[in-house]
Design a protein around this nucleic acid. Structure first.
Lengths: 150, 150
DNA sequence: GTCGTTGCAAAACGTTTGCACACCG
DNA sequence: CGGTGTGCAAACGTTTTGCAACGAC
């Protein structure tokens, strides 16, 4: 089991996940390996995952390789990461474009619409010429439940 | 050298930094120690600092104590921390209320006005009852200089 | 004198590096 | 076959923990 995961993320329009990967790698003179397919597949299946969680799902791939692969996949533009707390970063498919909202008290993570930061992005751009990276972005605070429980 | 730092942060209105600290500690049955005064003093003097940088400024205090003290000072509400990059967190006096804007490319950190996030805070609150913590907040992206250099 | 607090040593945690072998193209 | 990619082991930077001694109140 394991060879047949058919996540139909409509990435670049044409082609499956692996085809995207192969294309991007070839364009840079890099190689398509089973490990790279497996790690990308795991990220797509998990949605949000730390390097360690990915390692648990693909035990046959060494953790070192997972770190190196995630870095590569991020350069290629197939995955992204964000820091959702004090621990390890969380990786996800690049197509999942959203802003993370994390409760300091209960640790719950909610995905919010990227448009949430549009006003801020606009202001940073016009006032400072700063281009905000919406994906690498976490908002902390207290969720309704935790606020009420206090 | 060292004993005379007179940072007149108008904290709770009355009293000096140490008086604030002593009051807050006593209210919880905790003790005012030289180490706690020194660490708070260092944070106020440095403005932004990692635990290690604080340790360099107050070498007679053990790093372990610095970690424990920063945690305590944050609970008490006298300091705050934010994550400005992949490394160690940065601590600052609680009175310094601002939002951090960090360039991914050159690493430069700019302090922005807290009102920058007001629209987002308002929306999160009305739509989800979420109370945003403005101080623990970092915005990543690319600054004008780095964007132009590309 | 009590009990909160400290320093030291060691462990834990997440990540990176060096190197010989494996295998994609 | 050549050079990229992998696994293993070890180093690394940061933070936490356990414990005996210390000192604020």
């Amino acid at each position: 089991m394991g060879a047949m995961d058919a996540h139909q993320h409509s990435t670049t329009g044409t082609g499956t996940a692996t085809a995207d990967l192969a294309r991007q790698l070839r364009a840079r003179g890099l190689r398509l390996t089973p490990q790279r397919e497996q790690v990308l597949s795991a990220v797509r299946a998990l949605g949000h995952a730390t390097p360690e969680q990915i390692g648990e799902r693909v035990p046959e791939v060494d953790l070192t390789t997972i770190y190196r692969t995630l870095e590569l996949l991020e350069e290629i533009g197939l995955v992204r990461h964000a820091h959702l707390g004090h621990g390890a970063p969380s990786y996800r498919p690049a197509e999942d474009d959203h802003v993370h909202v994390v409760c300091h008290t209960c640790g719950k993570v909610v995905d919010a619409d990227p448009s949430l930061v549009d006003a801020m992005a606009e202001r940073l751009h016009s006032e400072r010429g700063f281009l905000l990276d919406r994906s690498h972005f976490t908002v902390f605070g207290r969720c309704r439940e935790c606020a009420e429980a206090e």
